[in-house]
Design a protein around this nucleic acid. Structure first.
Lengths: 241, 241
DNA sequence: GAGTGGTCTAGACCACATC
DNA sequence: ATGTGGTCTAGACCACTCT
């Protein structure tokens, strides 16, 4: 998977940018680069296109391709830097260990919302899973997830105490690569205050998401209530449509 | 701009999907489609790629291209549907009029953060602009923005009471198409409570953004404090890298 | 084996920026 | 006039799915 031409070149250029191996902020032109890498200009364009989509470079017709100075100065700000969609990963903090407490785990019938969101029929059943996530001893997230049993028939509490997405990727060879997220804000409920150790005036961030497998199959509907101090969502928006 | 082959086809297929003109959830294969539209397969792929990036279809190697059922069922949920990056547009609600109250408007020197974010030097000056946005008579957003004067030397209060992005696009021919956003949550401050008509226990959502022009020039740094009931951010995430 | 999407090439021509 | 990125083509071959 990693030996594709445009991927390889993209990573190579990214590394060169980070290591400041280009003179100034402008990259060589596409024709020279394709000569240098010994590939067609189309493949070269594709590699540069990926970099542009990630906000690492800006392309300007007639002028050239330029490194985004903010990428060099503030790389951590950028989305998905070395992460995947797994919550376990995206909330990880260096030096802190993440723990999971299983609050609830059962199989229920689908209601109308679930049927729509997970593309199911009335005869399908889903797991309902509630988990409390902690960094060291600080709880920061209450997660309620719904997963069709037919997608992961052998799910069990041991898996749920670790990373669900890791289990899927490594044991079932299913990758979760797409999601719809809706982010909102609410005052904390009593349960939030108790479980997340919040004061009554302190709020929660709410992330509702539908996660998809590679092939477009909806895999999980999830509602996450996040301690406001741990709530941070970064997004790079590109509207060149 | 709208007469590009892949754009035109993309919009045509999008419309056919919305109008349910395809049998079932699967599109015809790429080769048939390129035959039908009388274009090369590459152009066809490009059109379909755009649809996939927006989450409208899913492509599955070996099987075909499928309409995302959730797109049909819940189109409003999707990002950028007929919008641009302008806040004026993304917060618009049918049937409600948007108003802007100018709270503060001055020119200041750059501090270190601004210099970094807007890629300026110490000799540059910026506008500091604070605006309160309302839907009908309900205030929902306090916005503090910083803009280098050299990018928009003739800015004035009249423009600021309307849409800044519209002014840029139509009067200055500068389009804002990229941004970095960071979304967090906080309890409301006293000022929030007064200006946004919030109870003391009610929170705000915070959107901090850096907006870029087409060529990568950082154009504005903005901090938006949003009434929690009006705070909703949708995001389609695709990790096929 | 047949069908479908993915990758890659080589080259023509266009549109914009700069000098 | 030259250099740069953008669009589009025609076609070869690969990788995966389904039957």
């Amino acid at each position: 998977m990693a030996d594709l031409v445009y991927r390889t070149i993209m990573h190579d250029i990214k590394e060169k940018i980070v290591n400041k191996e280009y003179d100034g902020m402008r990259l060589p032109d596409e024709r020279s680069l394709s000569e240098h890498y010994q590939v067609s200009r189309s493949s070269m364009k594709r590699a540069l296109e990926l970099l542009a989509q990630e906000g690492i470079v800006f392309k300007k017709r007639g002028s050239g391709t330029f490194i985004n100075p903010l990428y060099l100065k503030n790389r951590g700000l950028f989305k998905y830097e070395g992460s995947n969609l797994g919550i376990t990963d995206s909330f990880s903090v260096p030096g802190k260990s993440q723990n999971i407490e299983l609050l609830d785990y059962q199989v229920i019938k689908t209601d109308d919302d679930l049927k729509q969101d997970l593309f199911l029929t009335s005869s399908d059943f889903v797991y309902k899973i509630r988990r409390l996530r902690l960094l060291d001893d600080q709880p920061f997230l209450i997660e309620t997830g719904f997963i069709p049993i037919k997608i992961a028939p052998d799910l069990n509490p041991d898996i749920l105490k670790k990373s669900l997405f890791n289990y899927l990727e490594h044991q079932k060879n299913k990758r979760v690569t797409k999601s719809f997220l809706t982010i909102t804000v609410e005052p904390s409920t009593l349960e939030d205050q108790v479980k997340l150790m919040l004061e009554p005036n302190e709020p929660v961030g709410i992330i509702e998401g539908i996660f998809f497998l590679d092939d477009g199959t909806p895999f999980e509907v999830s509602n996450m209530r996040v301690h406001y101090k741990y709530m941070k969502y970064n997004s790079f928006v590109n509207l060149n449509k």
